[in-house]
Nucleic acid binder design. Structure first.
Length: 583
DNA sequence: GAAATGCGCGCG
DNA sequence: AAAGCGCGCGCATTTC
């Protein structure tokens, strides 16, 4: 097999792995069969020669490769790309025979709809473990014939679509994201257990020796119970708490903090305090620390495309919900630091670009889009601009937000038309697509039944109201889908660009303050965290300026990959700091 | 006793 | 300020 194959397709059957080299047109260049236990060495050798890997499920194969010390630069994750191509509306547009055939073949390959193997459950050394072993989900097919056939179907689908370049880019960044996700789990986020413990002790009081509530939690609970006039009052059961509140004259309808804040009663302040303390204690207290931090690393499991819009989800440890105050426990290794970067107002910027709204793009020039909106005269204050823009993207209809949205509609006609059109499409049961072609799920059977019941001439007011509300809910979902989903695509492109540029950096001398643990690549500047529109790079302090430039250049590259030369800024808030705090 | 559901709150 | 999008998780409660 030639060393210069554009693609190398990997399949597994029993204890044998098969590597098939393909040229850029998909023509087979050669085939190697190797024992599974030598696959990592083969991958390392071919990676050095340069190729793009094609496999069925990055979450299944890549953790084991990383564990064996092998990193790859590029891959195509057929499971993730299958989901994109199976659902994309870009194959339905022109009604060509080729597009229809490609779509039909993809949709018939149902085995590829299998869920991912949870990389958090798979042992890191079990390369391509047998299907369904130990009660795990089987995952997508791995046999080389099936893998080759699926790759061919996907290439045909992209080529036959109305936007081949966009779909191909989406598949590329989606797959790059799968590599990043596995690498970040392997590297982990540097986490200072002592700093975390100090925060908990300061906020909650000393950790109780025999379990039970920490001192300040117990004291606050006692204060609340005293003010409720019931020393046995349950504070953790919403219905019981509600009854206790009613008894002391607080007519709340729910126990949510945004509602409780509205009432003027001495019990409210300590009750909100109790809820906040209890939240920290239960969600990110000492038990969390013991469960999720090992050897100075928090290792979240990221689930690429775990959200319908294409955003990532996470599993275990609540990686995407780390409270801001605990960011201080994110602590770089000695001699190392973090480059922490996020995009200011990513979603409205993406909306400006995808709608081609030059007025909104002009307001987005510079670092604060909301100030730009005020300067345009659409609204009077920055706060109004923010509320109005969020309302436009989320579908607010009432309150201040709903009142302000029409002001934006006059000034930013194209941007508002894009989200309004997406909402109408959802309301009538259709689907909408992101800029690169990820398409929203079809209306559920239940949703369609609700609509059809209401359209019957005998339908009562209850049926009609239910259908109206369901249509509104779905419209708000599709309205937001196009913006949130395209923002996720921009962020994936940014992440992919950062990763490749970091990988191209010269290696750090090993004696330069290597991290305490982790795979080989984590001894050079590497991605350590990603959260929708923010990333953290862990780097030797001496290289932070280089990384700073890479992260900024990557943002510019992402903008031009998605939107070409459309004039839209994506300014970063970027900080170099040995703790993970923003700004 | 396990699984499903609702609530509330953390993050974007 | 108000409660409009997307998530995961812990607890209490309900259901099987």
């Amino acid at each position: 097999m030639s060393a210069a194959a554009a693609w190398t397709v990997v399949g597994v059957s029993g204890d044998t792995a098969t590597l098939v080299g393909l040229d850029a047109d998909g023509g087979e260049r050669g085939r190697d069969r190797v024992p599974l236990e030598t696959l990592a060495q083969r991958v390392a050798a071919r990676e050095a020669a340069g190729t793009r890997w094609v496999w069925s499920d990055t979450a299944r194969v890549y953790p084991a490769l990383l564990h064996a010390g092998v990193r790859v630069l590029r891959c195509r994750d057929l499971r993730l790309c299958h989901a994109i191509l199976r659902d994309t509306a870009l194959l339905d547009g022109d009604g060509s025979d080729a597009a229809a055939a490609a779509a039909a073949q993809l949709r018939a390959a149902a085995a590829w709809d299998a869920p991912a193997v949870d990389p958090g459950q798979a042992p890191p050394v079990a390369l391509f473990e047998l299907d369904g072993a130990a009660g795990r989900p089987a995952g997508p097919p791995q046999e080389i014939g099936e893998v080759l056939a699926e790759f061919a179907r996907q290439r045909a689908a992209v080529a036959a679509s109305t936007q081949p370049r966009r779909l191909d880019l989406l598949c590329a960044v989606e797959s790059a994201g799968a590599l990043v996700a596995a690498e970040m789990t392997a590297a982990g986020l540097p986490w200072d257990t002592a700093a975390h413990d100090a925060i908990l002790t300061e906020v909650l009081g000393a950790r109780p020796a025999g379990g039970g509530a920490p001192r300040r939690v117990a004291e606050t609970a006692a204060t609340v119970r005293a003010l409720l006039g019931d020393d046995k009052a349950s504070l953790d059961s919403p219905p019981k708490l509600l009854r206790s509140l009613h008894r002391v004259g607080v007519p709340a309808r729910t126990t949510a903090k945004w509602e409780l804040r509205e009432y003027d009663h001495p019990v409210i302040a300590p009750l909100l305090e109790y809820k906040a303390l209890m939240r920290l204690f239960t969600a990110n207290g000492w038990a969390w620390l013991a469960d999720w931090v090992r050897d100075g690393r928090f290792r979240p499991v990221y689930i690429p495309a775990g959200v319908v819009t294409g955003r990532w989800a996470s599993s275990g440890g609540g990686a995407l919900q780390i409270p801001r105050r605990l960011r201080a426990a994110v602590r770089a290794d000695p001699g190392w630091t973090f480059v922490v970067a996020d995009v200011a107002q990513l979603e409205p910027r993406v909306l400006a670009a995808m709608s081609g709204d030059t007025a909104l793009a002009a307001a987005a020039r510079g670092s604060d889009l909301y100030s730009g909106i005020v300067d345009s005269g659409a609204v009077a204050t920055r706060a109004e601009a923010k509320v109005a823009m969020l309302g436009a993207m989320y579908g607010a209809t009432t309150g201040e937000s709903g009142r302000l949205v029409p002001r934006l509609r006059r000034t930013y006609r194209r941007a508002m038309a894009l989200v309004d059109t997406a909402a109408r499409e959802g309301e009538r049961g259709g689907v909408v697509s992101t800029w690169l072609g990820r398409t929203s799920p079809a209306a559920s059977r239940g949703w369609r039944e609700v609509q059809s019941l209401a359209s019957d001439e005998n339908a009562g007011v209850v049926e009609r109201e239910r259908a109206r509300r369901a249509a509104g809910d779905r419209g708000r979902f599709t309205r937001n889908f196009v913006v949130q989903g395209t923002a996720a695509e921009w962020a994936l492109a940014w992440l992919a660009e950062v990763r490749l540029r970091l990988a191209a950096l010269a290696p750090v001398p090993v004696e330069d303050a290597a991290p305490r643990s982790g795979p080989a690549f984590s001894r050079t500047p590497h991605l350590a965290f990603f959260l929708h529109d923010e990333l953290i790079v862990h780097t030797p302090a001496a290289r932070a300026d280089e990384v700073d430039r890479i992260v900024r250049d990557a943002a510019a590259a992402a903008a031009s990959l998605l939107f070409g030369d459309f004039p839209i800024d994506f300014p970063l808030d970027l900080h170099i700091s040995p703790t993970g705090e923003k700004g």
